[in-house]
């Protein structure tokens, strides 16, 4: 007994030092992360201020816009919104029934559901540039040109795994007792799914949709060859469409400082939209945890 005791006394300073060093390392990493993250937001905000005018968001590019003349990026804002609403709608229409089938008709660990979930994992990991390539190949096969429609389909494919996995997770969390209670009342599987499970999982589904919207909004690589770009507002599915990330990208490549500054302003606008989405997500996920049955 006393040997261990002696050793304890002997070892104590070293253990204390390691403990403090570890805490210090953890703390400084956290500080570093906070500093970096603040730096990003501050950089974007400060650099964008000179060009952040109302005309940025209410006007389309005028003549000579890319030489530094008058105009705004309304085309890209509207285009992005058109693109992601269409894309998310398509993705949702495919994802929802699939996820319901996974969770109501199939047994918990059936090889089918394993395979589907694995393919969702794979799709989730595929870089969006590859989706862009695949979208381009689809365009060729369907004889489409770069257009709102082609962009929507491509972004829908990017969003599909994100949406499906997020919805799958919330629907899987619906307690099986609730399902069983509904079945025992004579509800069919579909009725159960629609009336009981979806209601229970509703905030989670909204969150999933918002996450997908955010991803679609920020994704540039997938629309690079499929959506095209235009200085006008897009009014038809078959016209090319401008998107915010690409607007930033193109303006940044301009040699004119005025135009580059507009790129910063566009970045601030995009950041603001993402912030909005993430705030709404917070709101809904707080609701989600409030209704969760423990």
């Amino acid at each position: 007994m006393d040997t261990a005791w002696e050793k304890a006394k002997f070892k104590r300073p070293k253990r204390k030092i390691i403990d403090s060093l570890f805490r210090l390392a953890a703390f400084s990493s956290a500080v570093l992360v906070v500093v970096i993250l603040t730096l990003i937001l501050m950089t974007i905000l400060i650099r964008s201020l000179p060009a952040l005018k109302l005309s940025m968001i209410i006007r389309t590019p005028g003549t000579g816009y890319y030489l530094g003349h008058e105009g705004g990026i309304l085309n890209a804002i509207v285009g992005s919104l058109e693109l992601i609403s269409g894309a998310t709608l398509i993705a949702f229409i495919i994802a929802l029934p699939g996820v319901i089938y996974l969770n109501t008709y199939l047994k918990k660990n059936s090889p089918f559901s394993e395979a589907v979930r694995f393919s969702l994992d794979v799709l989730w990991g595929i870089p969006s540039i590859v989706y862009g390539v695949f979208g381009f190949l689809l365009m060729l096969a369907w004889h489409l040109r770069a257009s709102l429609l082609a962009g929507m389909v491509t972004v829908a494919l990017v969003e599909l795994p994100i949406l499906s996995r997020a919805m799958d997770e919330t629907i899987r969390m619906v307690p099986s007792e609730i399902k069983e209670a509904a079945y025992s009342l004579g509800a069919s599987r579909w009725q159960t799914a629609i009336r009981v499970i979806l209601r229970q999982a509703f905030p989670g589904i909204i969150t999933a949709v918002l996450i997908a919207l955010g991803r679609g909004l920020g994704d540039a690589a997938s629309v690079l060859f499929t959506a095209g770009y235009t200085d006008r507002l897009t009014t038809s599915l078959f016209q090319p469409v401008a998107t915010l990330p690409l607007a930033i990208f193109f303006q940044l490549n301009s040699p004119y400082p005025e135009v580059q500054q507009r790129a910063y302003a566009s970045a601030a606008i995009l950041t603001f939209l993402i912030l909005l989405i993430s705030l709404v997500i917070r709101f809904f996920s707080r609701k989600l945890s409030r209704h969760k049955i423990k």
Partner: peptide
């Protein structure tokens, strides 16, 4: 305080990060 900040940054588009890279 930190959680919403991290959420926002996880959702920031890559073009923003690229822009920050160019600027800083």
């Amino acid at each position: 305080i930190l959680a919403p900040g991290l959420d926002l940054l996880a959702g920031l588009p890559s073009v923003i990060y690229g822009l920050w890279g160019i600027l800083l």
